[in-house]
């Protein structure tokens, strides 16, 4: 029996970018309001899970040829690397620094090294969640 799911595919292509926007917002809202690397990574992983559910695994892996185990490993390396970066400047392990910079068109913004750490956490979460879901799915 042929199943007609053109509405689901069209809506999923739209909603995917809405979820990605929310994930980026949550990732950058992490300092003073709810959010951060972990929840941003979970929302990003849920967007990928939506694509894997609506389409099939083969199509997504052809269009997005990323090994998610490598993504998780790179994220862990990045997070621990920012911890060791503080040792170079003579501070304690995982000491975080921040400063204010004047950027044209944006004005004065705050740049921190916590953002790099949170990015590593987000990559670990995305990689681990997608790897688990692909491992427990039906395999041929």
């Amino acid at each position: 029996m042929k199943i007609n799911n053109v509405i689901l595919r069209t809506v999923a292509k739209l909603v995917f970018f809405i979820i990605l926007t929310l994930a980026v917002y949550l990732f950058f809202a992490g300092h003073n309001s709810p959010g951060g690397g972990f929840s941003g990574g979970l929302v990003l992983a849920s967007a990928l899970v939506l694509l894997f559910i609506v389409f099939d695994i083969e199509t997504i892996q052809k269009g997005l040829p990323i090994d998610f185990k490598l993504v998780a490993a790179f994220g862990a390396f990045l997070s621990v690397g920012t911890g060791f970066g503080a040792l170079i400047f003579g501070d304690n392990f995982l000491t975080q620094a921040f400063d204010y910079f004047n950027v044209p068109f944006f004005g004065e913004i705050e740049l921190t090294t916590v953002t790099i750490f949170e990015g590593g956490v987000a990559l670990v979460v995305v990689g681990v969640v997608v790897t688990i879901l692909l491992s427990i799915s039906e395999d041929e």
């Binding site: 199943i3 689901l8 999923a12 909603v15 979820i19 929310l22 929840s39 929302v43 849920s46 899970v49 939506l50 894997f52 559910i53 609506v54 389409f55 099939d56 695994i57 083969e58 199509t59 879901l133 692909l134 799915s137 039906e138 395999d139 041929e140």
Partner: peptide, 27 residues
Amino acid sequence: ILAILAFISTIAFSKYIERGVILEYRR
């Protein structure tokens, strides 16, 4: 986030009813 999770879970359950499998390797 709750609305997104409810949307995705409803799609997953509906696909489970219709196909019997949620993540399929090749459609």
